[in-house]
């Protein structure tokens, strides 16, 4: 590089302080609302949480009462059978609720995309409704369904039991859906699936709309059926969307809190089958008043989610698929 000649003369006005200030800082000022909010509500809590995780502290006593305990909070969690139990519950619930979500949402989105042109938005909106419904309302609805003595589900089963001929196929006794060990997790999963299918449908629809129509046209000219089109065109081209949707479900599933919390009344349900790690963390903070242990638990969960996301990305993400296409 040769030395550049002095720049063409700039009008004197441009060198005033205000103008220079503007040029230099305007972008930062414009972007600052995001960063201020991010620092106050995301970065600071994360750093504070990390700090908390190596301290012993009771919420309710002042900040000055924190005591440094090193890794003790982490080892406490790792030796706590309830923590492992909660992690196991979380994994089962994530699987039980995560897999059906996609097995339903993907074909459903394809059907809506292909079959319904006019009422597509309406149908999507209807499926999306549970996602934006308040959890309290959802809990009321599902209690009315699942309630042991007063639930609609048991009333329906009872009516079926009283039918002639096929009545014997249905149970005579009322089933305590939220009170029996074997039903708690499926009941929670059902609500989660119901709530998030619409969200995934929306994601998949967006992905489907990005696939050019002429590919389908070409395929149908070649004599491909709808099923073949789905298998050989839609699925491969939808892979990035599937990866995104599965990643979101994975993260969401491991952070499950609201549904099991309201359905079990915060108790974790019979046999603690509905106690997820986030619920246990909340309990450790809120009723055990052990903020340090709760903070450490959130970091451990973060590590679990991180590892699983990494595996997911290796298997289905861009890097994992690079060699195959």
């Amino acid at each position: 590089m040769t030395a550049t000649p002095s720049p063409p003369s700039i009008p004197q006005r441009a060198n005033t302080g205000w103008d220079r200030f503007q040029r230099r800082y305007a972008p930062y000022i414009f972007i600052s609302p995001f960063f201020l909010l991010f620092f106050a509500f995301s970065l600071f809590p994360i750093i504070f949480n990390a700090y908390l995780s190596v301290h012993s502290w009771q919420p309710g006593s002042g900040l000055g009462d924190m005591k440094f305990v090193g890794w003790r909070n982490f080892s406490d969690n790792l030796t706590d059978p309830t923590f492992w139990k909660s992690l196991q519950n979380t994994a089962i619930l994530a699987l039980e609720s995560g897999v059906p979500q996609h097995l339903i949402a993907l074909p459903l989105a394809f059907a809506i995309h292909m079959g319904l042109k006019r009422v597509q938005s309406l149908v999507t909106a209807v499926y999306f409704l549970p996602y934006i419904t308040s959890v309290v309302a959802i809990s009321v609805v599902f209690f009315t369904l699942f309630s042991w003595q007063y639930g609609a589900l048991n009333a329906g089963l009872n009516a079926l039991h009283n039918l002639p001929l096929i009545g014997g196929l249905f149970p005579a006794e009322k089933i305590n859906w939220l009170g029996e060990v074997q039903y708690v997790q499926p009941a929670i999963s059902l609500v989660v699936v119901w709530r998030y299918v619409g969200w995934n449908v929306l994601l998949y629809l967006a992905g489907l709309q990005a696939i050019p129509g002429d590919i389908y046209e070409a395929a149908s000219i070649d004599g491909a059926t709808r099923a073949q089109q789905f298998r050989f065109i839609t699925l491969p081209l939808l892979r990035p969307t599937i990866f995104l949707a599965v990643t979101l479900t994975l993260i969401g599933g491991f952070q499950l809190f609201e549904e099991p919390y309201v359905l079990t009344n915060g108790s974790g349900g019979t046999g603690q089958q509905g106690l997820t790690t986030i619920m246990y963390m909340f309990r450790t903070y809120n009723s055990y008043s052990d903020a340090g242990v709760a903070a450490a638990m959130s970091w451990l969960l973060f590590a679990v989610i991180g590892v699983l996301s990494l595996i997911n990305s290796r298997l289905f993400g861009r890097s994992g698929l690079a060699g195959k296409d």
Binding site: S139, F143, W148, Q149, Y150, N176, N265, S267
Partner: peptide, 10 residues
């Protein structure tokens, strides 16, 4: 009635 804690829906 297996209603759990007081003030539960059941």
């Amino acid at each position: 009635a297996r209603a759990g804690a007081a003030f539960s829906p059941e």
